[in-house]
Design a binder for these strands. Sequence first.
DNA 1: ACCTGAACACCGTTCAAGT
DNA 2: ACCTGAACACCGTTCAAGT
Lengths: 260, 260
Amino acid sequence: MCPQPPLQTSRSLARQQREQALLKLAQQVLRQDGFAGLTMDRLTALSEVSKGTLYNHFSSKEDVLTALSVDSLERLQQLFRLALGFTGHSRERALALHHAYHRFSAAEPTLFLCLLTAATPGVMEKSSPQRLQRRQKLETELLTMCQTVLLDALADGSLTLPSGTAVEQYAFINWAMAFGCNALFMPLRQLGLFAGLEVGQVNIHSISILFDGMGWLPLAADWDYQASWQRIDQMFSQQLSTPMSDTFIHPMLSNAQEPA
Amino acid sequence: MCPQPPLQTSRSLARQQREQALLKLAQQVLRQDGFAGLTMDRLTALSEVSKGTLYNHFSSKEDVLTALSVDSLERLQQLFRLALGFTGHSRERALALHHAYHRFSAAEPTLFLCLLTAATPGVMEKSSPQRLQRRQKLETELLTMCQTVLLDALADGSLTLPSGTAVEQYAFINWAMAFGCNALFMPLRQLGLFAGLEVGQVNIHSISILFDGMGWLPLAADWDYQASWQRIDQMFSQQLSTPMSDTFIHPMLSNAQEPA
DNA sequence: ACCTGAACACCGTTCAAGT
DNA sequence: ACCTGAACACCGTTCAAGT
């Protein structure tokens, strides 16, 4: 009756679910015992698979970290999709993208640290090429999403490119700023620096400066972006309190399942 | 005749020199075999000390990486000193600071990657508290140097703080931007992204945007900062071609040695 | 007081045997 | 075709013995 529920697919689905379960466990270990506490022994002990199977999923310990960073990027992408759906002018939508980035780094500090760690040469050197490729693809897609908003802004005239500047460049600068602010804040805090500063505020402020510097209209002086930020925050809170996490965890379910 | 050349000092000097030699070797290994290729075995094999002595200097393998990051910060500090000596208005001096940061990341990619790696939780967790403290102190000093220029700008009126903003915040944003741009560029390049972009140009551009966004006078439209960048570059090239590297490598020599 | 390197322990990775 | 876990190998860390 079911139109041949393809065995291969359901098998690979199971495989994917197991991999997700393993990554969940890895996160748990990272949270409990820190990054130094993550060992393949501990991971197998907590899981229900043997070491061999673990290595069937991940080519090395570092590959686990890269896999977690891929997961992070996928979640970021989900948030970016929501951000792009925000109703407002182009600069507000760009603000929404930054909000998504910040929200993720605040809600998932461990995963965000995976993003930082996976950008490290020692980890990249020992990760599987396939996983690195997957990450590259995702990162490209995210940057493309950033460029979408920039192109919109160019189209509606709220932003003008100085001659000799590529859109790519603006996307990179935004990405770098977001990464720098969110990535540096945690370690510097840990070192005891910037005790007086609040992440969210610094973030909003730095984005305002960046966009104003790009000449992105309306400028901060002519618009209440603090209010926009709050509206964006509410939008996210609403959207995330409801279903969506389902579609996130098993993006393939829609193919696999059939209405009864 | 010599006013008691203190034995303790000369001993600790020798110790310091040996530590520098070990760090030089570690760099060599990192360059040749990558970060995954750095092992304590390999380091002792290349050096003339035993493992025990190596561990007498560094509490762990990760401590070696943190030590390299401390070294990096010390060199950055040297460059920052030069930058602050640049003759020009406050925004140009701030540009000089960014130039120093960029110059370092370009001239010493391996050391810069150490800076990135040492900010990683896995490394911090296994580094000695003393070394982490040393790093924190240096990082504070560097940020203070950034704040110096900001305060100058506030004093001469070329920069105005919006109410409710701390100078610290501006210093952090600058630091984050510089870190983000320089740190992300290398890994993203390695992943094959941004093949068309040139680091130096992106850097200058991002700094212009940042300073313009802060409203730091004169704005980019009213001043040729490309020319300033080149003048700064020349200044660095001149200063660095001459002595100074001596005083850098052995900052204590001036105390220890006596004219014959 | 400091150095040595053999010994130890932990942990990442593999692979022959099993289902 | 996939799973298992004992075995292996590498490498980080220690410490008893030496100077």
